[in-house]
Design a protein around this nucleic acid. Structure first.
Length: 581
RNA sequence: GGUCCCGUGGUGCAGCCUGGAGUGCACGCCGGCCUGUCAAGCCGGAGGUCGCGGGUUCAAAUCCCGUCGGGACCGCCA
């Protein structure tokens, strides 16, 4: 049907008769007998010179046959990769007429209401940006698969219709026609199946898996998403990090032409202390500074707290108005702080001085301590939060991002392994049982096994062999060394307050499997949508998903979700509640 | 569950604060002119339930309340 693609044409093919197929991207008429058509396919644009174009309109699908020739002197277009040439002596066959598109299919589409783009996603996808994103995603998937194959991982597909488990995120649920009143769940991840693969002697498993979580959507979260899911037998944490780093490196190489070297590591504790986040964006400084000891004997009631930290926004005093400071204070309160103390650093008669509503409550030693530890200079703005350690880190971490985070496409690709996550994230105030930070099959750090028999506060100090991969402040994925010893697993369930009966009910098949000879194993999973978005400089994963959903979980193109017929409900043994109709 | 922002011809915006005739700009669309343009140019034209509902008012795109849709975020996402 065609001899060439539009974007591949260059001076090399001059003189050849070419047949091209594509869409009319633009038409420039110069009277009855001269017009220019920009013909577009997935490879790009090329200019066709035609004898009148009255019958052609935007987005008509045409086949053009003509002779490729150099453009006349002075008409070369440097903006276009095919700008040296044009197709002349054209005959044009209309393969499909088209209505005018509802929005411009060029770079201006970036400003169009996203709902409109999604309603006409098939038009949106014709755009160069979207073509690039889809094709880059495909290449990244391919590179990741190659990297995993080369490391002897076996690609295995796991079921999409599985048993629901109460742990973790809210499940998407599918009614079972053959067993009315029962339900399948869509997998939140293939977690249990990949561990069963290890028991099954697979040794190394991987899959680019579709996963489903019925939780509120965000710029970096959809109901359904893809992850590289992997699991290794007879492997340590270091083995996993090395293998995953190779896959990530292959993905990066698709976009930058270069792989990544060793990925730096940071402990969870350091990440929280210095950046106030378990997924620190290390593209910029403004680190949290520990100030608790400065206020050990303070007279200022608001600072009589177990933890005080501060951040210094260098040189920001001039640009930070009083109303902006009030906004930031409101933000801090929304994030859970009791308040936010701000201080403008100014030149005073005797060195630096602090301009702040609370300055009068602070001693000279305290003021000096703040300035010294933060290394503040005149013109800086200092923010302080006092509360318990976790709250202080959380609030200042969010404040740091609000004040200093660079645009998504700046600062390069700063991968980071965050290691030594705590095994338990908190003690439930009602049951006084610890709550798993990762999942209950995560292996505690060997050095901390003794703490498992200690007091509740000791439990919170237990580190796990769990690790996250972070890129520019986005959590790309997480993994852990799994518990393969039944004595340790029993102890963890005991601590979590999960009875043997309950464990058997929820995870019995896995625990059964482990009784038949489970190899030590460890694994990881990272989000494809996220890594592709970041590598392409997109701040929203919808830009790298062909048919994404809106924040409320709808699809403007198909109208999903929709009601179903009463007969369908009947067959499934379901009846709707009055408020659902 | 919560906070904030947005909604005006097909598209992007201005108008709203300070109420006074659907007013304006750019693109697109339709028609005409135009033989070297490339977001072609020039001339003319069509195109509107100001998201929806209610309230205040002599009068509402504009003020108030509610609601729907979209977006960002907190919670949530083992």
């Amino acid at each position: 049907m065609r001899s060439h693609s539009c974007g591949e044409l260059s001076l090399d093919q001059v003189g050849q008769t070419v047949t091209l197929c594509g869409w009319v991207a633009r038409r420039r008429e110069h009277g009855e007998h001269l017009a220019f058509i920009d013909l577009r396919d997935h490879t790009g644009l090329v200019q066709c010179v035609v004898d009148g174009a009255a019958e052609l309109r935007s987005e008509f699908v045409v086949r053009v046959t003509g002779v490729l020739r150099p453009r006349p002197e002075g008409t070369v277009n440097d903006q276009l990769s095919t700008g040296q040439v044009e197709v002349g002596e054209c005959t044009v066959e209309v393969l499909s007429a088209a209505e005018p598109p509802p929005f411009p299919l060029d770079e201006r589409a970036a400003d169009v209401d996203e709902t409109v783009r999604l309603r006409y996603r098939y038009l949106d996808l014709r755009r160069e940006d979207m073509q690039k994103n889809l094709r880059t995603r495909a290449k990244i998937n391919s590179a990741i698969r190659s990297a995993m194959d080369a490391q002897d991982f076996v690609e295995i597909e796991t079921p999409m219709l599985i048993a629901s488990t109460p742990e973790g995120a809210r499940d998407f649920v599918v009614p079972a026609r053959t067993k009315p009143g029962n339900f399948y769940a869509l997998p939140q991840s293939p977690q249990l199946f990949k561990q069963l693969c290890m028991v099954g002697g697979v040794d190394r498993y991987y899959q680019i898996a579709r996963c489903f979580r019925d939780e509120d959507l965000r710029a970096d979260r959809q109901f359904e998403f893809s992850q590289l899911d992997a699991e290794m037998s007879f492997a340590s944490q270091d083995d996993v990090l090395e293998c995953i780093t190779r896959a990530v490196s292959a993905a990066v190489e698709v976009v930058t032409g270069e792989g990544i070297g060793e990925v730096p590591r940071m402990t969870w504790r350091d990440a929280m202390d210095r950046f106030g986040s378990d997924k620190p964006d290390v593209r910029f400084g403004m680190e949290l500074t520990e100030l608790t000891s400065v206020f050990a004997k303070t007279e200022f009631n608001a600072f009589k707290a177990s933890s005080i930290k501060g951040i210094c926004h260098v040189g920001a005093a001039a640009e930070t108005s009083r109303s902006r400071l009030d906004e930031l204070t409101d933000d801090a309160k929304r994030w859970g702080a009791k308040g936010l103390v701000w201080m403008r650093v100014e030149d005073g008669e005797a060195g630096l001085s602090l301009n702040s509503p609370v300055a009068k409550f602070l001693s000279e030693d305290e003021k000096t301590g703040i300035l010294d530890l933060l290394g503040a200079q005149a013109g800086d703005v200092i923010y302080l939060v006092a509360d318990d350690w976790a709250k202080v880190c959380h609030v200042l971490g969010l404040l740091r991002l609000a004040l200093g985070r660079p645009p998504v496409n700046e600062g390069g690709f700063n991968f980071l392994w965050v290691v030594d996550f705590p095994l338990f994230e908190s003690i439930d105030p009602v049951t006084s049982k610890p709550v798993s930070a990762h999942h209950p099959f995560t292996m505690p750090h060997e050095d901390d096994w003794a703490l498992l028999d200690g007091e509740p506060e000791d439990l919170l100090k237990v580190r796990s062999q769990a690790y996250d991969l972070v890129l520019n402040g986005w959590e790309l994925g997480s993994g852990s060394v799994r518990i393969h010893r039944s004595d340790i697993q029993s102890r963890i369930f005991e601590l979590l307050g999960v009875s043997a009966e309950e464990a058997a009910l929820k995870f019995g098949f896995l625990l059964d499997a482990f009784r038949f000879g489970a190899p030590p194993h460890a694994g990881f999973a990272f989000g494809i949508d996220r890594i592709v978005a970041l590598l392409l400089g997109e701040e929203n994963i919808r830009e790298v998903i062909a048919f994404p959903k809106t924040q409320s979980g709808g699809d403007p193109l198909t109208g999903a979700p929709t009601p179903i017929e009463p007969a369908q409900l009947e067959e499934l043994g379901l009846r709707l509640l009055p408020q659902a109709t």
